[in-house]
Design a binder for these strands. Structure first.
Length: 472
RNA sequence: GGCCCUAUCGUCUAGUCUGGUCUAGGACGCCAGGUUUUCAUCCUGGUAACCCGGGUUCGAAUCCCGGUGGGGCUACCA
């Protein structure tokens, strides 16, 4: 199959999760079918355009490996094409100029509302064409001349047969008075000209699809295949959008969600492989993807599940690579004085405990700063001050003999040789608290291992233990 | 309001087309137990759903009809 698809966002803000999912499915479909993936920027509403949005779209797509083959193509640079096609439609009677004032339209709407019937433009300007006032006047729009009778239907690849009576369709605006086309028009022209075979987009476009089809037919063009994707909704089951506040992909990336986790997660929103496999790389997704496996009902964006995917990928990622993503989250402004080995050890220790990378900041503070804690914390079960002191002295003595860069295994071995396998808690709890100041923390051996990557690691550790002894 | 879409555990979903193997499976979450020096990881177990009402049928989550719930669209936005 020769497939050509496109992802056609409007540059009105940061790319959000729903947009990324649409891009992903288009990408997967293209790759799966040896097709072409076009990036098209639908910037026909200049008033809503946000600076930097295009850059954000491109950057986001790149970080997720959703590389496009053609584009970005900007609709705002193709005005002439749209005008030509609009003229053709007007000439053949499938569209017409409308010079109605905003007031008249508002009035029409008000009446429709009062009579509890849906608003549809009354084709006034079609029936009463304004006398040509020469080329000067441009206060008109071009409207689609939707037939008043008949039924328009299409076979959606996801939803199956959808049909609507033309009588429920409005003579929508095709070209605005500022000369820019609206989505419903530019979309059709471009999809045809770019030879798009499969239009894969959000479910919210189902209601406007019949109008698009009518347009294709007016031009005598072949209608592409449509595959509408179920909506992504929030906890309240409302459409996930920029208004949902936290839907920007960039925000998730900044919080320390790994791209592969986000991708894997959103792939499963509205689609699943029909097997019990949950973890998929991008390549595996390409192999498994099939529009037939796309669901029809809206999917709730569940952060808990994203967290699970993310923690999985965090645990799985090689340390050196993980460090690149996590670097910025360490609780120091500059990590350059610290050897990579030290930082990697911290990640190794913490990675099993993270839902997102940004959490290392709040978790690993004691590696960079002497902890504050109450001396009561040093007591495990009913240990007395004397016992704690004695325990810490033992730890101190053992650690004193350690060399730079000693391994966790060796540390553990040495400790257990010294004290036997008996009452580990009485020795290890106070040591752990002295090191971290925390009730719950990673084990002391791995913490020591990390510190012994530092030139002054031994000194720091010994100092902390002494401080604990002094507290008693 | 009108048009359109949709309906399986709290959430993502398998199963629906081709009715029985479904006392409805998996995953997340949650709960309990095990491993363990605390926490986490890990392992084991548990919790929890076919929207409602009719009909067809020996038999319905699955087919039909009617409700109801949820959502989207209804812009000179996309």
């Amino acid at each position: 199959m020769v497939a050509t698809v496109r992802f056609a966002p409007s540059p009105t803000g940061l790319l959000h999760i729903g947009g990324l999912r649409t891009a992903l499915f288009n990408f997967l479909f293209a790759r799966k079918n040896n097709g072409k993936f076009i990036l098209r920027i639908e910037d026909t509403d200049k008033s809503r355009e946000v600076r930097g949005a295009v850059e954000n779209i491109k950057e986001t797509l790149r970080t997720f490996g959703l590389n496009w083959d053609v584009g970005p193509i900007f609709q705002s640079e193709r005005l002439k094409t749209y005008h030509e096609h609009a003229s053709r439609l007007v000439a053949q009677g499938d569209a017409y100029k409308c010079g109605c004032s905003e007031e008249r339209i508002a009035d029409l709407k008000k009446h429709a509302q009062a009579e509890k019937r849906p608003f549809r433009y009354d084709k006034h300007c079609l029936k009463n064409p304004a006398p040509s006032t020469g080329s000067g006047s441009n206060h008109f729009v071009i409207r689609q001349n939707v037939p008043e009778e008949g039924i328009t239907s299409f076979e959606d690849l996801v939803y199956g047969k959808i049909q609507v009576a033309n009588s429920t369709l409005d003579d929508g605006i095709l070209v605005k008075s500022d000369g820019y086309p609206v989505y419903n028009f530019a979309n059709v022209i471009d999809d045809h000209l770019m030879e798009i075979t499969h239009v894969i987009r959000g479910e919210e476009f189902i209601p406007s699809t019949p109008k698009h089809i009518l347009l294709y037919k007016s031009f005598g063009w072949q209608v592409p295949q449509f595959a509408h994707l179920p909506l992504l909704v929030d906890k309240k089951r409302q459409k996930l959008s920029k208004r949902s506040g936290d839907a920007a992909v960039k925000e998730y990336v900044e919080k320390g969600y790994l791209p592969e986790a986000i991708l894997n997660f959103i792939a499963f929103l509205g689609w699943n492989p029909k097997t019990e496999q949950e973890i998929f790389s991008l390549d595996e997704l390409i192999k498994a993807f099939d529009l037939e496996k796309v669901n029809k009902s809206a999917a709730v964006f569940d952060l808990e599940k994203l967290n699970w995917f993310n923690s999985h990928y965090i645990k799985e990622k090689p340390l050196s690579e993980l460090l690149k993503y996590a670097q910025r989250y360490f609780p120091v402004t500059d990590t350059s004085p610290y050897p990579e080995e030290f930082l990697e050890k911290i990640l190794e220790i913490e990675k099993g405990r993270l839902n997102k990378l940004s959490e290392v900041g709040e978790r690993a503070g004691y590696f960079f700063q002497e902890p504050e804690y109450n001396k009561d914390l040093l007591s495990w079960k009913d240990m007395t001050g004397e016992e704690i002191k004695k325990s810490l002295e033992v730890s101190k003595k053992i650690i004193f003999n350690f060399q730079f860069s000693i391994s966790k295994k060796e540390i553990e071995k040495t400790f257990f040789q010294e004290i036997g396998e008996g009452d580990k808690g009485t020795l290890l709890w106070p040591l752990r608290v002295a090191l971290t100041g925390l009730r719950a923390s990673p084990g002391p051996f791995e913490i020591l291992e990390a510190f012994f990557c530092l030139q002054n690691g031994k000194e720091t550790v010994l100092k902390r233990i002494q401080k604990a002894i002094d507290k008693i």
